[in-house]
């Protein structure tokens, strides 16, 4: 069995995953996404892989490479559909809403004036987020009309085309923490709470992580979220939850290239090992299928011997 690990930077997470794969003596090939190129009419060079484990920091690079590899019939973890569903907050919100999964209210607008109207209608405070992006970057809590006008103008003037999409989320007055649940397939395997004095609690922004015991309510919510985002087989996902003042959990975001360096010791769960289990299970299925297909098309061999001599 051969696994490709598609990466752009080897961070602590990738190092841990590589070490776990090596510990299991897996035939592993590291694929630098910056060196990725493929002739779309010739999948042959890529058929050596039973699965490709995607761990790029760039969503654009990840989606592009994975779409090509999927078209060659190579299972990728996560699939491009999952990357696209998770990588765009509006797409995520639409999927969650369509599937009846508890999530903060969201309005979307495509014009600065209309965005201001939408913000006023939603009521202050609101949170403006870039539809694409992560690590808590460029989030803005907007408390009043003055701030709304300033942020909308800045986004319109300074931002890229993407910032012309105004993703407006209700501000959830969370109790000083949010939750992150790690899901393998559709099974929540571990969770942390992230606390910060700041309203942004991402660990990338200084939030402090501690282990969190998954409740039956959160377990069910995350299983339903995983199925909504990735189908019955699920995926490797980190689901971010906010809690209302009444303690009701809401799905805020779903991440497709989970970072877990602060969550192994805090949860006591060997997250990279569980991720590798999942990847190898998918690769094993492909490996078995390929072997059975090869056997089916191989010419039948006959035992040689005297023929037609009566």
């Amino acid at each position: 069995m051969r696994i490709g690990l598609l990466y752009s930077r080897v961070r602590v997470e990738e190092r841990l995953l590589i070490e776990e794969l090596e510990r299991r003596n897996i035939d592993l090939e590291l694929l630098d996404v910056n060196k990725f190129q493929a002739e779309i009419h010739d999948p042959t060079p890529w058929q050596r892989f039973d699965a490709v484990f995607e761990r790029c920091v760039s969503q654009t690079q990840a989606t592009t490479a994975v779409r090509v590899l999927e078209s060659f019939g190579i299972p990728c973890i996560n699939p491009s559909a999952v990357i696209e569903a998770c990588g765009d907050k509006l797409t995520t919100s639409l999927i969650l809403a369509r599937n009846g999964i508890a999530t903060p209210r969201v309005r979307v607008a495509l014009d600065p004036e209309t965005a201001l109207e939408a913000i006023e209608q939603m009521g202050y405070p609101v949170v403006l987020k870039p539809a694409v992006g992560s690590w808590g970057r460029l989030l803005a809590r907007v408390n009043d009309r003055d701030a709304a006008e300033a942020i909308v103008e800045h986004k319109s003037t300074l931002g890229s085309v993407q910032h012309g999409v105004f993703y407006i989320q209700e501000h959830v007055n969370k109790p000083g923490r949010d939750l992150r649940v790690f899901v393998v397939g559709t099974t929540p395997i571990a969770a942390i709470e992230r606390r910060s004095a700041h309203w942004i609690t991402n660990t990338a922004r200084g939030g402090q992580a501690a282990g969190f015991q998954i409740t039956p309510e959160i377990d069910d919510l995350c299983r339903r979220t995983a199925r909504a985002m990735a189908g019955q087989a699920g995926a490797l996902l980190a689901i971010d939850l906010l809690e209302t003042e009444e303690g009701r959990p809401l799905v805020s975001e779903v991440n497709h290239t989970m970072e877990f360096r602060n969550s192994i010791a805090t949860t006591g769960v060997d997250i990279p090992a569980r991720m590798v289990d999942y990847v190898l299970n998918i690769a094993e299925r492909r490996s078995v299928n390929r072997a059975s297909q090869a056997a089916a098309i191989a010419p039948t061999s006959f035992t040689s011997g005297p023929v037609g001599v009566a």
Partner: peptide, 11 residues
Amino acid sequence: LAPEVQEDWGE
């Protein structure tokens, strides 16, 4: 020096 964080980088 590692490259600057790009707009579409993240989890």
